[in-house]
Simulated assay, not measured.
Amino acid sequence: MKKIIFFLIIFPIIINNNCLAKIKKIRIGYLEAGQFWAYDGIYNAFKQSLKEKGWGNKIEFPPNAHFSPGWEPEHVPEYEQRARELMERKDIDFVIAMGTAATQALLKVNNGKKPILAMGVADPLASGFIKSYHDSGIDNFTIRVVPNRWKIMFEIFYDVVHFKKLGIMYSDTKTGRVYANLKDAREVAKEKGFKLIEYNKLSTAEELCECDKGLDYLISKGIDAFFISSLVCFDWTKSDVQKLMNKLIKNKIPTFARDGSSYVQAGALMGFSSMDFSAMGDFLANMAIQIFKGKKPRDVNMIDRPSPKIAVNLETALKIGFDFPVTILIASDEIYDKIILPSNRKFK
């Protein structure tokens, strides 16, 4: 009798341990077109938030399912190849699309089944990735959306600087125009009455020599402000950005850095503050958790409404002879009193 009682007590424990051993972790694949500092910030904040929300032991990110082919033109065909691999692999349950090019590649080979969460995309609506701000239009796809973010950005820059000719450059491809937020720039130019001076002869590699030539062209056209969009030639970890910034400062041209704080600290006049990715990481983690729990990606709320935060650089302002309105200084979230180049820059 004692043996029977002992067996009945121990048997459930054995069953529970076996069940725990069979619990399958959610395996997450990742695709980006190439390395970019903001992608790292977003992705790390996303993973950290999942961990803080108790999902650290329930998910894993296999190194052999993390792809970053590169921005050079010869790597472009690999985007779709890697996207197809992630969608077809049986050992991957969930896919992260980081950036516009990666999202475009994954949606092109989408099987309609495996969940895709896109992040770090410049403009989901303009890219044609979603049906509307409230509906992705694709059952297994969702993405973080900040309505009118870039339009507000151009409006803030104009309201502070009151320029007459805003310079902008980009690769004349669908992705290149989206990275430059061209549609919003043109709309605000029309509404505010300034002229948008465009240089669209960059290749998809967006090399330093091309951007340097582009700046020369824009300066020759009399620009009195320049928009630093998401360009590889302005990525401090890959390019000699100081050469471009010095040219802009020498010509006393106010600049707005779309991708934020590190650019402002390194010499842009102003830009969106982006030192802290934690709030974005929390929003994205909450989206993913809903999907992990069984919610259809299309049914997950996509709209995030963070308050715009501004960073300014006082040394740059002094060098180009620009006086910030007191109201802007009071409202700024980050104020740098001197130019400090990134410690991780490629060229020193």
Rank of each mutant, 00 (worst) to 15 (best):
A189N: 03
G176N: 10
V178K: 00
L182A: 04
M153N: 12
I143R: 08
F163T: 07
N181A: 08
I152Q: 13
K151R: 14
I143K: 05
R149N: 07
N148K: 13
Y179S: 11
V146R: 11
V188D: 12
I168K: 02
W150D: 15
G167T: 02
K165D: 01
V178Q: 05
H162N: 10
G193W: 09
Y179P: 09
I156Y: 12
T175R: 12
G176C: 10
E155Q: 15
R177W: 00
H162K: 15
G176H: 06
K190T: 07
V146Y: 04
V178R: 07
R186S: 11
R177P: 13
K174M: 11
F157S: 03
F163G: 08
N181M: 10
D159K: 11
R177G: 07
F157K: 08
I156D: 08
A189R: 02
K192M: 15
L182G: 06
D159R: 02
M169D: 13
T175S: 14
F163V: 02
Y158G: 10
R186D: 03
G193H: 06
E187V: 14
H162V: 00
G176S: 08
N181D: 05
A185V: 04
T142D: 04
A189Q: 06
F163E: 11
V146L: 07
K164C: 12
E155K: 14
W150N: 15
F154L: 01
I156G: 00
E191P: 05
T175Q: 14
R177I: 07
A180M: 05
I152F: 01
T142C: 12
E187C: 02
V146H: 03
F157R: 03
V188M: 12
I168N: 10
Y179L: 15
K165S: 01
T175I: 15
V160C: 11
K164P: 05
G167E: 07
K190H: 09
D172G: 04
W150H: 15
V161S: 02
F163P: 11
I168V: 12
K174P: 06
V188F: 05
K183R: 15
V145W: 05
H162Q: 05
V146P: 00
L166Y: 04
L166E: 13
T175E: 15
F163S: 09
T175N: 14
F163M: 15
I143D: 09
E191I: 09
V178T: 12
Y170P: 12
R177A: 07
K190G: 06
Y170A: 07
H162G: 00
I152M: 12
F163A: 11
R177K: 15
V178C: 04
K192V: 05
K174C: 02
N148A: 12
L182E: 07
V178H: 05
R149E: 10
Y170E: 08
K164F: 06
L182R: 06
M153R: 00
D184Y: 09
